[in-house]
Each structure stands twice: as C-alpha cells, then as structure tokens.
Design a binder for these strands. Structure first.
Lengths: 256, 256
DNA sequence: TTGTTATTGTGTTAATTGTACACAATGATA
DNA sequence: TATCATTGTGTACAATTAACACAATAACAA
C-alpha cells in the first residue's frame, strides 16, 4: 500500500490495483493534435494483441478526477498545464472487458478488479503536435498519432468516445478559442483556417474567415512572414492572451 | 442479494447496499420546473436533520447510468419518458460524507459504503410542474419545489451542481427547444417569453421574441385564448413535435 | 355606460452582421 | 521575364437582428 501506484508490475496492478485506485471508474482521454493539415488523436497499441485503445487510467482513492486526467495526459505526452475538458461520462453496462473477450496478461488474475464493469469519464485535450513526446504505458507497445477519419476499431466503446469528443469540440469551437491551442505559437492565417475547416468538416471563405478572426481582436500580426512556401509568403500571427482576457469581458464569439 | 434493492430498510441499505449498487459512484438530478413565472428545482429535506439535498441515487451493478437517472426521476416525480441530460461529473475527493459531518442514521453501520468518497454524475431534467407528484425517498421527510435563486445550503457540493446545471441549461437553450418541456401543452406567448427570460436572466423584446419563435415554424396557434387574465386575452399555442422533427432536418436555432 | 389602464397583436425601419465576389501583390518556377 | 498559385485587401449585396409605434382588447372604475 505504500508503493508508487504507477510503478506496479502488471501482476501487482491486476491483483491489487484496487487498493490504490477507485474500482469501476476510469478516465479516457481524447488527445487532439494538428499536423500536416490533419486532425489527429493519440492512440495506444497493445503489447500482446492487435488491439488499440485511447490513453486512459484510473483515479487514486483520494485524487480529484481532473487531476487524474492531467496525470494521464502528462504521462502520454510529457505536457503539463494543458487545458483538459471533461465532456461526457460513459456508463453502458457492457463496458466490461469480460464481455468483449479482453483478458488480463498471462499470469495475472483473470478475476481482477480490471475485469469488472467500468464507468469512464471522458476528457479531451488540445495539444501542440510538435511538443508531444508520445509515450506508451506499460501495457502498450506504442503510442502514436492517428488521423481522426482513419481511426481503427478500438476496444469497448472507445470509437464512440472519440465521436462524442469531436462533437463536443465542435460546439466549443463556437464559443472558445480552442483552435489556438493546437497550433504552434506562431502561425499563419491559412494554417488557422485549415485547422477550423478540419474540425468543422467544411470549407470556409478565405477572406471572410480572416475578417472574422481579426475582428475578434485577439491576434497580433508579427513583423515576420513564413518563409519556404512555394508562393507568396504569408504573415505570421500569434494568439494574444492578454487581449483575449480583455475581449472575454465584453463577450466574443468564435462562431464561423 | 435477491431482494428489491429499492425496498431495503435503512439498516440493510447502509450495511449491504454495495452488493446491489456500484460503490463510489452516485447520480444526482437537478429537476427543473416552471411555476408562477419562477424557475424551480426539486429538493429533498432530510428526516433526521435540517439538511437539504438534490434527489439522487445509485447505479445497479449491471444498470446503464441513463437508466439509473430515469429511475430516480420517476421515483421523485412520478414521471416517465422525460428527457434527461447528463451535463457533468463531479469528482472532488472531498465529496465524502465523513468529511462533512454527515452521519448514517442511528443504528446503521458508521463504516458503511455510503460513507466513502463518491463521484457523482449530474443530470438535469425539465418537467411540467403541474404533472409532478413530489415524493420523498426513505431518508427524507419531504420533497418540494424551491425557486432557484432561493435554494438553501445543500449537502456536499449540491449547490455547485445546481449552478453547473443552470449553466448547461442556458447553453442548450440556444440549440434545443428545452423551454417547451417546462410548460403545459397549451401556453401563451407571454408565458413562453417569461420562461426564456427566467432561464437566461435577462429581459427580451416582446415583439422580436414572438417573431423569432414563430419563424421557427414549430408552434401552432390554437383557436382559443387564455381567459381570466386581467387584460387582453392572449392566444394559446402548442408545440408541434411533427413540425419540430421536420425543422430539425433543415437545421434551426433557438438562439435569442 | 364609458373612459382609463395594462396588456396583446402586428407591423416598419435602422443597424449590424454575414455572404459573395474582384483585383492587386508576392515569391517561386519555367 | 512571363506564368502560376497563393496571399492581402476591399466592396456590394443579402440576411439577420435590434429598436421602435400604434391599433385592438378586456377588466376595472367612475
């Protein structure tokens, strides 16, 4: 009971994880990134099978659920201080590894607490793709980005969880500057537009988009231009948090 | 293990409820009603103290969480087939009766599963005030309506849960016809406007409101007028579900 | 019976916002 | 140096929202 619960061996975890973590409750994270004009999510590939799943974890008996989600994000990406958004809790009684032929690793107790029915709390996060160091957990062989429209069959209801996360993200997009978290500090207007188009799944008018974004008054145009492109060099912008805080007070909408 | 889990005595429930229900997880319902131009919520007054709380309950080991919430709503209001909206899950580790001086009834085990830390899933529902028969649970002396701005101090974080439910309701108001569920089948335009004003907490222009509502094409004006008022008799309207289904397909917004 | 009052029904107009386009400027390439 | 794809900026029109005026009605008081 006094070991680091994140350093347990698989056997110990299956046998006695419930002395550290709450039973029947888990957390799953949909971690979004944006790269090559594609919206991607971070997936785990399991060690001993061809299964894929979302990064997830459990809640320490005296831990806040937001903190538990933050820990999961940190361990899979190396990132701290990222805003996590809780979007839905999934409670179908079929969320049960027993009912899906998912077995504990050989040598572990097949009656483990992990094999019970679980309710999972879904969070999404927006991270800067280039800053992420994807790290598998001890049950996975790899942790990697996957384009959202090419996600394979995942365990349990994890595909549904991604769908719901995307739906929630689209709704948030109209009220909060979620897009900016996905881009590097400096970005061009076409990059920002491409991001919005990808999340919303529709093409937007280039000129009206720029007009709208600049009218929010939360972007600062830098005296630099993006070099290396094959055509006219676009200006670089940065998201101005101070201006954003000011703008929030008078109310602003990111609706496109 | 084969009794009706909802007919347990208090002693049995505290001692062995966790053989029927999931531990550490509860559901709390914010049940909204509208009466006398006031938005109200249903509260429980506890038997053995001066405490108040939201109607809540637990999840059977093999029960869907939405179903569990539906059961809670049915038991407190007598109503079925009401849309419940899951809006947030509350996971502060201080959600623990032990830490708030809330004790089991005399004669029950003070180490009961109920005295552990609980994560609660919040749902709200909109019900027609006149159709509700408020019924206390076995731990409460009364179940009654309370105006949302006059809610007393509730146990644990139940006041926060109501705040979050209201916030979620306001957001939904702009996308779904939530208001109509709170009114009787036949209602007047001023009544509908008063409901929107109460939920949003702001005054709206009478003429623009009517124009907007009628333009949605989901209301049918009846050949009747509300009698008994002190002034000009307003027309009665009803919400037309068929028209609503049609309108949904082409997309519509209730934004005010 | 009749005027007063508060409320409802139905417009019209002005301001704002959103949509659809046109054209010049730029940087790499041929 | 001409071409091409792309970026920067502006303008006209449509749609929506906001602001406002006046007639009709029902209860009440004189």
């Amino acid at each position: 009971m006094n070991k680091d619960p994140y350093s347990l061996s698989a056997e110990e975890f299956y046998a006695r994880g419930d002395s550290y973590f709450l039973p029947h409750i888990s957390i799953d994270c949909v971690i979004f990134g944006f790269h090559d004009n594609q919206l991607k999510v971070l997936l785990l590939e399991w060690k001993d099978s061809l299964r894929w799943s979302l990064p997830g974890g459990f809640i320490l008996k005296d831990e806040d659920i937001d903190q538990a989600a933050t820990t999961i994000l940190l361990k899979r990406t190396g990132l701290e201080k990222i805003h996590l958004h809780q979007f839905h809790t999934f409670g179908d009684p079929n969320r049960d590894r027993k009912k899906h032929g998912i077995n504990p690793p050989k040598g572990s107790n097949p009656k483990s607490w992990i094999m019970d029915r679980f309710i999972t709390i879904g969070y999404w996060a927006l991270v800067e793709h280039s800053k992420v160091t994807p790290s598998p957990d001890s049950f996975s062989r790899s942790c990697s980005w996957c384009e959202v429209s090419e996600v394979p069959d995942l365990i349990l209801d994890h595909n549904l969880i991604i769908d719901k996360a995307l739906e929630s993200l689209r709704l948030q997009l109209n009220d909060y500057p979620v897009g900016f978290n996905l881009l590097p500090t400096k970005f061009t207007m076409p990059e920002l537009q491409s991001l919005y188009e990808t999340i919303l799944g529709e093409k937007l008018d280039r000129r009206n988009f720029q007009k709208k974004m600049l009218s929010l008054g939360v972007l600062t145009r830098l005296n630099e231009q993006k070099q290396g492109g094959a055509h006219k060099a676009p200006f670089l912008y940065k998201f101005d948090k101070k201006k954003y805080q000011m703008a929030l007070k008078r109310g602003l909408s990111f609706g496109i």
